[in-house]
Design a protein around this nucleic acid. Structure first.
Length: 287
DNA sequence: GCGTCCAGGTCTACC
DNA sequence: GGTAGACCTGGACGC
């Protein structure tokens, strides 16, 4: 039995631009059907997995849920969170006025970065992106979802009951394996609360420091997480972003990070989002 | 088939 | 605080 719900979206929202905002739509339990423009995700409520298929609708998002009874209030909150429907991007669009190269951002209503229902899930996924190919990231996340969450992203408690050997042999997480055990145990034991990062009053620099206390989270991972919790004043430079900057702004020649930082300084608190949009334009224009 | 390199980096020891 | 070396894995590439 399938049930549909409708989520109203703000005028500046684009379903496709949000889905294409970064690679998260390719990571389980998300899956993307590009031909029919449907994004799937397996949400979680007290009754277990809630498989949902999301698609564009007039002034909103249509969500088809393939479970008869589910916690509609919880799923709606999750949907608003992952699509960032309550984020105000007016400051971004103001910051890029007059920068011809970035006109497309407002035209395509880009800038909302798709995220997971929990910061914990985004944290684990971000660690899976470090020091490996995107293909391996997908393998690790898929193994975590299938082997620990039975199709859903596992809870910290579910991730804490297995040991590092499990992550090594079953997840293929390599040296990250003990990091996942430690992280899951800290959250399950109440010693770390990543969800609090969404609402903390800590200055960005201090929040970044707190994030880096998690094993496996360095500068890149922390700045990526900062963007996902709504703070855009870090560039989150990784090898891919650097290579794109070299191609687009430096005649394909390598340069120091300080040059990249100088280039985006003028965008102030929005610079992390501006560099991301600037480097991913091709994804939106080609599609 | 095999060896090497590298990818959406981070940690630790050492200076 | 800065830096070198180690760290897992899988795919691409050259031979």
């Amino acid at each position: 039995m399938e049930k549909s719900i409708f989520i109203e979206t703000p005028p500046s929202f684009s379903f496709r631009s949000t889905v294409y905002s970064h690679g998260w739509s390719e990571l389980a339990p998300f899956s993307l059907d590009v031909e029919n423009w449907r994004l799937s995700y397996v949400f979680r409520d007290a009754g277990g997995g809630v498989p949902a298929v999301m698609s564009e609708a007039e002034r909103g998002i249509r969500v088809d849920v393939s479970r008869k009874n589910f916690d509609g209030e919880k799923i709606t909150l999750d949907l608003r969170h992952i699509f960032r429907l309550d984020d105000d991007l007016a400051g971004l669009y103001e910051a890029i006025v007059g920068h011809e190269r970035l006109n497309w951002v407002a035209e395509k209503q880009a800038g909302r970065l798709l995220r997971s229902p929990t910061v914990f899930e985004d944290l684990v996924k971000t660690i899976c992106t470090t020091n490996c190919s995107w293909a391996l990231t997908k393998i690790m996340v898929s193994n975590i979802v299938e082997k620990l969450g039975a199709g859903m992203f596992p809870t910290p408690e579910q991730m804490a009951i297995v040991d590092a050997d499990f992550y090594r042999t079953e997840v293929r997480a390599g040296y990250r394996s003990p990091y996942f055990v430690e992280l899951a145990e800290m959250i399950a034991g109440g010693r770390l609360d990543p969800e609090g990062w969404l609402t903390t009053d800590l200055p960005t620099a201090e929040l970044k420091k707190e994030m880096k206390n998690v094993k496996g989270v360095g500068d890149y991972a922390a700045e990526n997480l900062l963007k996902l919790v709504g703070r855009y004043d870090g560039l989150a430079l990784d090898s891919w972003l650097r290579s794109q900057f070299y191609k687009n702004h430096n005649n394909a020649r390598k340069c120091k990070d300080t040059k990249i930082e100088r280039h985006y300084k003028k965008f102030g608190l929005w610079r992390g989002l501006v560099i991301w949009c600037d480097m991913t334009e091709k994804w939106f224009v080609d599609r």
